[in-house]
Structures are given as C-alpha cells and as structure tokens.
Design a protein around this nucleic acid. Sequence first.
DNA 1: GATGAATGAGATTTCATTCAT
DNA 2: CATGAATGAAATCTCATTCAT
Lengths: 224, 224, 224, 224
Amino acid sequence: MQLAAQADRRYSTAAMQSSRRALPNTAAKVEKYRRRYDEIIDAAAAVFAEKGYHGASTKDIADRLGIRQGSLYYYFASKESALEEVCQKGVEGFVQGIENVLARGGGGETQLRAAVLNHLEPLNTRPTYVRVFLRDRHDLPQASRRKIGKASRQYESLLEGLFRAGVERGDFRAGLDCRLATLAMLGMCNAAASWYTEGEGIFLEALAESFATLILSGTTAKNG
Amino acid sequence: MQLAAQADRRYSTAAMQSSRRALPNTAAKVEKYRRRYDEIIDAAAAVFAEKGYHGASTKDIADRLGIRQGSLYYYFASKESALEEVCQKGVEGFVQGIENVLARGGGGETQLRAAVLNHLEPLNTRPTYVRVFLRDRHDLPQASRRKIGKASRQYESLLEGLFRAGVERGDFRAGLDCRLATLAMLGMCNAAASWYTEGEGIFLEALAESFATLILSGTTAKNG
Amino acid sequence: MQLAAQADRRYSTAAMQSSRRALPNTAAKVEKYRRRYDEIIDAAAAVFAEKGYHGASTKDIADRLGIRQGSLYYYFASKESALEEVCQKGVEGFVQGIENVLARGGGGETQLRAAVLNHLEPLNTRPTYVRVFLRDRHDLPQASRRKIGKASRQYESLLEGLFRAGVERGDFRAGLDCRLATLAMLGMCNAAASWYTEGEGIFLEALAESFATLILSGTTAKNG
Amino acid sequence: MQLAAQADRRYSTAAMQSSRRALPNTAAKVEKYRRRYDEIIDAAAAVFAEKGYHGASTKDIADRLGIRQGSLYYYFASKESALEEVCQKGVEGFVQGIENVLARGGGGETQLRAAVLNHLEPLNTRPTYVRVFLRDRHDLPQASRRKIGKASRQYESLLEGLFRAGVERGDFRAGLDCRLATLAMLGMCNAAASWYTEGEGIFLEALAESFATLILSGTTAKNG
DNA sequence: GATGAATGAGATTTCATTCAT
DNA sequence: CATGAATGAAATCTCATTCAT
C-alpha cells in the first residue's frame, strides 16, 4: 500500500513533470513507462555513486543502459534533475523510519538501537542512492538543495529529540550534549556508506548492533 | 627544525618535479618560488574544497589568484597533479601525530583523548586540505591513490593498535571490536570536517573532549 | 565484389571502433554513416596535405566541412586517429598493386614499367592521402607507425625482389645494387608527389613511361 | 677567407638584424656572440629535423641547450625567423657547388658524377639543415619562402642546364627529357636525406657513385 | 647574457543538450 | 520510444612571446 502510494506520488512530482514528453495515457503504458523510468534513474544513481556527479557523464549513464545519450532526455530534463531525483530517493524513508521508531515508544536504549538500524538499512536496500545523496547533494541547484536540506534537518532534529527525551527520562546520562551525540552517530553511520558492502564479511544487523552498543556504552572497561 | 626539514623535503617531491619549470638555482629564488607555489596550491585546495575536484575548474583557481588560467601551468603540470599535492598535504601529519601520541605512552583513555585531538586539529590548521582529501581522493590517478591509500591504512592501523593495546591492558572492555571502534571514531571525526568551522560556536578542543568522552563512556546513564 | 569486401572490412577496423559513436544497426544507416565518415576523412587528408599534420588544426578540417570543431569527434576519437586513418588509406593498395604486377609475370623491363605506373597511379586517385603518408607518417603514435611501417617494408621488399629476379634472369645488369635501385626508384617517384598535379601539363602515364625508361636505360647516349 | 666572408655576411643578414639585441661592439664580443648564435641555430636545426617545425617547441630547443625558453629570444626574433635561418643554411652552398662543377668543365658524365656528389655532400656536413629545408620550407612566411624558392629554382635550372649541355654535346642521348631527368635525380638524392646516416653501412662517396651510375646507365643489361 | 614569471591566444577534447526523423 | 547528427560552450592544456630584473 505504501509502495503504491509512493509510486503514484512519483507521477505528480516535479521530476516527472520536468521531463519533456507528454504523459502516457493508458494505465498499461503508464506502468511500463514508470518501470523504464526507474531503470534510468537506477543507472544514474549507480554511475553517480561510482564517479561522483561531476565525474560522471550522461554517456556513462546511457552506456550502462545500452541506449544513446540523447535518449535519456526522454526520461529526464537534465542531468541535474536526475541528480535531484536520485538524492530525493536517497533521503526518502529516513524521516518516515525514525518517526516509526519514535511512535513505537520503548526506552532510550531500545529506540537508539532501532534508530541505528533504521539509518543503516538503506545501505542494503538502495546503497547507490544513499551514497550519492551523501556525497553529491551539494551539487544540486539551490531550490532542490533547500528542499532536501529541509528533510535532512527534520531527520536530524527527530534524532536529536530521541536523545533529548532519553536524557529527560534518565535513560541517558545528564549533561549529554545531544546535538553532538546526534552528529557523532550520523558521522559514524554515514561513514559506513563508504566501506560497507552487502554480504561482504559483516551483516548489517550485526553492524547496527555494534554501533548502537558503542554509542550507548562507549569503550571503557567499567561500562562492560 | 622539523619545519625546516619539511620545507627541504618539499623540493625533492614529485610535486615540484612535475611542474614544467626548471628548478631555480639560488637559495633566495628557491624560497620565493616556494612561497608562490604554496599560494597556488592553497588556492587549488580552497577551490577543490568548495566545489569538489570535478566541479572546480582551473579557471576558478586562477581567478582566485588573480592570474590567467594558463599561468597555473608554470606551477603544476596538470589539474590532477595539483589534486595530488593537495591530498598529500591533506594526509600529511596524521601518521606523525598518532605516532607521537603512542610514543608518549599513558593509559588507553589518555591516549584516545590525545588521538581524537590529533585527528581534529588539522580542521583548524589546514581545513581545506583535509576536506579535499576526504572527499576527492578517489579522483586521483591510481599511482598516487595507492601512495596515499598506504598512508591512510598505516594511520588506521596505528589507531586500531591503540584500541587493541587498551583492551589488553584492561583499559578498554574485553570483547571490544577494535576495528569497528576505529572506523566509528574516524567516521565521527571526519564528519566534523563538513560542519565544523573554526571560531563558529564551538572550540575544537571542546569538540575533541566531547567526542573522546562519547567514545570512552557512551551515552548511557550508568556510565556517568 | 572486391570493392564491397573492402567496404565491409572498413566496419571492422580500429578506425571505426575508435570513433565515439555506437555502430549503426541497419544497412541503410551504415551506408549513410560511412559516406559521411569518408567525407570527414577526406577533408582531414586534404588539410593535412596542405599544412602538414602539426600545422593543421581541427578547426581547419571542420571549416572545410562547414561544421563545428567539436562535431568532428562524432566521427573520430582524436586528431591522431584521423592521421592514422589517412595514412592507412595512403599505403593501402601499394602492396596489392605490386603483387599483381609480379603475378602477371613478364620480363624485368615489363614488370618495372608496370611497377612504376602502379606506384604513381595513386597520385591521381588519392593524392592527398599519399602526400600525407609520405610527409607525416612520422607523427603517428608508435603502434600505428609500426603497423604502417610493416606495410611499407613489405612493399619495398617486393620491389627489391623484382630487381633481384631481373638480375638473375639476366634482364638487368649483373652487379646491380638492387637495394639502391629500389630506393632510387622510390625517391624519384615519391618526389613526384610534391610537384605532380593531375591534368597540369603532363599525363601520369607519360610520366611513368619516362621514369621507367630513365631507370632502365639511364641518360647516356650509348644506351639509346 | 671564404669562411670569414661568410661569417661577416652573417652579421649583415636579416636574421641578425631581426634579433632584438644591440649589436656587440668589440671584435672579441662579436666573435663570442657569433659562436653562441651558431650553437642556438644548430640546436634549432636539430630539433626541427627531429620533430618537424610545427611539432617542435621553443622549449625543446631551449632544453637541448640547457637554457630557458625566453633566453632564446636574445638570439632570434621568433621561432619562424629561426626556421628561416636554418633553411637558409640548408640551401646555402648548393648553388655555389653546382657552379663550381660547371666551371670545372669536363664531359657530361664527369659533371653529373660531380653534381651528384655535390648534392649529397651536405648530408654529411650539415644533415639537419638539409632535412629541415627539405621538409619544412613550406612553413616559412611568404617573403623568405620566395627568397629560398628562388635559390632552389636557380639550382634546379643549373642542373637542368648540365643535362641540356650534355645532350647538345652528345654525351647524353638525344630526346632526353632534361627537366624530368633533373627532377628524378633530385628526388633520388633528396630521398637519401631520410635514410642515409653518416658512418652507417655506406659511404657517401660510394652512394654518390652508385646513384650517378644509375642515372647514367640505368639498370638494363645491355648497358653494362 | 640570461632568467623567472607571466600572458594571451589558440589547440584539442569533452559534454550536456537539441531536434528532425 | 529512440536514434543519429550535430551544436555550442566550456574545459584542460600548450606555447610563442614579453619584459622587468
């Protein structure tokens, strides 16, 4: 249900409207077009993730799809708008996820573990999108950078709230710098985007567990 | 004394030899040239830090210096070699610093605090270099990427050793995943490169202290 | 039939593969593209012949075609690869021609006359290609210089063989330095590339006849 | 005596006047300057011979001399004027040489042998100059191209005269196409510039002898 | 006599984008 | 739906030349 909603939403986004084709007119066509559109954006994400936005050319994207450069413009209006879409998909879900975590309640410790897992999960489900968002969002044009920055800040704010509530509840130590704890957790987890690869050596759930423990208890012996 | 050594070394690096000019032949001229060279590389670092390597043009660098584009090539052989030099200066010092920390001895806690400070300090002394290193080192040509990767790995290895020794000594809890602790600390600290600005709100020493405490004791109340 | 074979072959050469475009997929498109490609290379040959490889700019080539400079790169990957193709077409045919001459048999005199004509004919059919080959082949990158050098040497070797066989048969005087005779003939004929122009004053067949006579009988009166 | 005259002449040529320095004012200085000047032009000739005029850079010349690019301009006014001087030295002597040959008299055969030797000798004494003249004279600016073209044409004309006189005298066969014989001889000899190297395998005198014999008697058996 | 530091014009190449078909 | 052929602007780099010192 949620997926469907998401899919429908896509047809009303700036992304779609900015491509210069007439919208398809039957449900079947719509469906087919959307599938192809997703492939195109997938390819863009993969290429951007590998070479960086400026280091990647539209030809790289086209090559990966086995089509010609110009054909891409049937699906997006510009390279920049493709980045926009990729970054959009990159942030997507983080906010929703943390909101779910907070809604579920539980103690600070439980919530933090869930938050860490929520933050790392996209590294398995849409790693290229996340990487591009993390590395190349600064190359977006002002308008969409702001939109995406807003989502980012909202997410950080919810995370920080999680810490703050934990302190108030006495789950976390008094005097904890919640802003810094948030930034530390984000830094730690985001860094994983550059070295974690699915199925290589470590499971994401174990990774999340380790990170959470570290944040919660630190490294010192007396904490054990 | 150490500074002088470093300066001399600079004239024997590939970086200098890769520029198109013949080396100057008197001490005074050498000194003058080196100063100008440093200005050029500084400008490159600043521009790369702002726009990313691929997003920055050599014209941007020249403009920042008030000279013409082509004149840059009196100082470096290619845009890529400028990136090389910037990244080189970006890693420079990290290894030396951690070695000093380890040499000084002390308990795991003391060493970790020092290590965190050592890692963050360059954000004050040469922020652009560090940022470029962190973001754009992947755009280096193989040869120098390897050279720089080697320094990186050495650094990480020394850090991990710090944790490992701490565990053995009983300073850190048994069973600590030292590799992960290293990566977590690096992620946390490196992320600061993207939001910390000297003199804005927080002092670097305070930041280092907070990070160190977080790593050591975590967030949980019982640790306080 | 042979022409067709040659045309097909062209689509399997490095030259075509080195251009940036994907190969077209229908016979008609292939044909159209090839025609245009030939025009492009023709223009390059003409410009190189006039100004020399280094003296000619890609803009000169584009201007001659009435297109923009960058558009050339739709057809070739680099100026150098255009030179390669031009030189390739410049040597093409010489070996085949001399082989035909030798296959046809006849006395040394007959064969030499035919060989001279074979060598001069390209000055009518593809003069710019030959001139570029003669003057600018040294500017080719190693790889193709070797390939073309091989064809050259094979050609010279066949020519020298013609002389040698003639001496053995008694058609040419004993003690003739066949290597030198070869080089002399080549020098004489190749020089014509710089002053012979079709339709101006002298017919190529007459020129070939005169050269052949000179080589065979020399200038001295008793030979008449 | 003749050398001195030549040297003095040099101080009155356009070449010297075109350099932008004040002329040296004492005999010793003049001598020293002239020696250095010759070295500079020698280097230019060597570099042009190796890479062609357009393929060579002033830096190549400076490097070969161990000086800086800009320093060249103390000796010549422009790269083009250096080419001019090199080409000038390249043609120099041919006319004088053939005039000497003609003045000495003798039969057509004797004269032709001498003429061939005269034409080849510069390949030993100033090979780079000759090669540059042969290959790059077309890159000269109109003015000097004309001047040098005049010398060329005069030389060719004298050579052709040698043949013509030989025919009249009955030394050469009646009906000989003297123009073509001239061009053939020039082509043959000039081609040697691209493969003859002093001291490698063949002596220039032997080469001249072989060429002369070929021109005189051809290859056919009955001529022996 | 030569150098060091630049310039400015031009070279080759790349690349996002367009558009008729 | 996609292609083929181009464009135009910009990017990196080269190089002959200048000139104060």
